[in-house]
Design a protein around this nucleic acid. Structure first.
Lengths: 170, 170
DNA sequence: TGAAGTTGCTTGCACATACAACTTTAACCT
DNA sequence: AGGTTAAAGTTGTATGTGCAAGCAACTTCA
């Protein structure tokens, strides 16, 4: 069995590295977001997607897809943000089943403060780790993987055209 | 605010792509593991780390670090696997506070069956997506990131996933 | 030796999440 | 229209997870 693993080590390892890298980054950012901004990683993820959307609002289903949450998970997440006064719901006039979530002025203010902190922290973590070319290469490879994963056989409606627009992603 | 984001798009984007790639892979593998092998992704993660360790056993703390679970989370996870008969605990003779988790014969058998399926699935997902050089480059970049994240200022003592899983000792 | 502090793991509790069932509205079909 | 099916969100319920506290064993130092 160990032989079996050995002969596939490269890919198994690559996948493992990807998971560990993501987990490590998540852990680092999460700690910082909570200690400095009192925002959970999950809240921040929802909020930054709203902040980056036209009108600072998004349909619930769209938000669920972008945050990798199920609809029910998103309902609760938005409930919490609503209780905190950062987000509000608005019924979609064209389809009265649907709802938009949008940032309140308070929510906007919080994100105006939070985003620079987050960006600075990303820079801090990544500084001097990659050359410009390496960083570019990494992004290109990951983009291809991401597009492949979400473009094929996905019922999640995650769009590739969201493209570069998933930076907050945590 | 959008301007602020725009000017940092490269790094923000790279991080976002990493998270999305990991989430996408996780989702794909999870579905397959559960449908074909009745194993949760979390269980599989624990089991494969054990399977890849010498003697198929690892200290609880080591396992927790490698699986990105907290010690308490790992305790519960191993509890469940123990109830399923896939894993057992063994008290560490040199430090009787500590415990090893190890695969039972049943657990070994399950993994002997599960790993080829998983490997095949990885190959399937990654086939024709990268050249050998690209895959190698991706692994190298991710490894540097992972080492950076876990090597610096981390109280987690995460070790490289392959190889240096030195279970015993302290 | 033994008291103080640390480490490894486990438990009490609170909370976030997924799955499945449900409500309301829209779309479709004859 | 009238009836059926599908879609968007929300809730009931079960479970998994982390944090903080706890317990047992080890280490240090006098």
């Amino acid at each position: 069995m160990a032989d079996l693993l050995a002969q596939n080590d490269e890919r198994l390892t690559t996948v493992g590295l990807l998971f560990e890298s993501a987990a490590g980054l998540r852990r680092v950012f999460q700690a910082r977001l909570e200690s400095e901004l009192s925002l959970s990683a999950q809240s921040f993820d929802v909020l930054i997607r709203l902040a980056r959307s036209p009108g600072s609002e998004l349909r619930m289903s769209e938000l669920a897809a972008q945050t990798s949450l199920t609809p029910s998970g998103l309902t609760r997440s938005v409930d919490r943000l609503q209780e905190q006064g950062l987000v509000a719901r608005r019924i979609c006039p064209e389809d009265r089943r649907g709802a938009f979530a949008h940032l309140t002025p308070t929510g906007q203010a919080v994100m105006d403060r939070a985003i620079p902190v987050h960006v600075a922290h990303i820079d801090e973590v990544l500084s001097d780790l990659f050359t410009a070319q390496e960083e570019e290469a990494l992004a290109a490879l990951l983009r291809r993987l991401r597009d492949h994963l979400y473009g094929v056989g996905s019922e999640w409606g995650l769009t590739a055209e969201d493209g570069d627009a998933c930076p907050g992603a945590d």
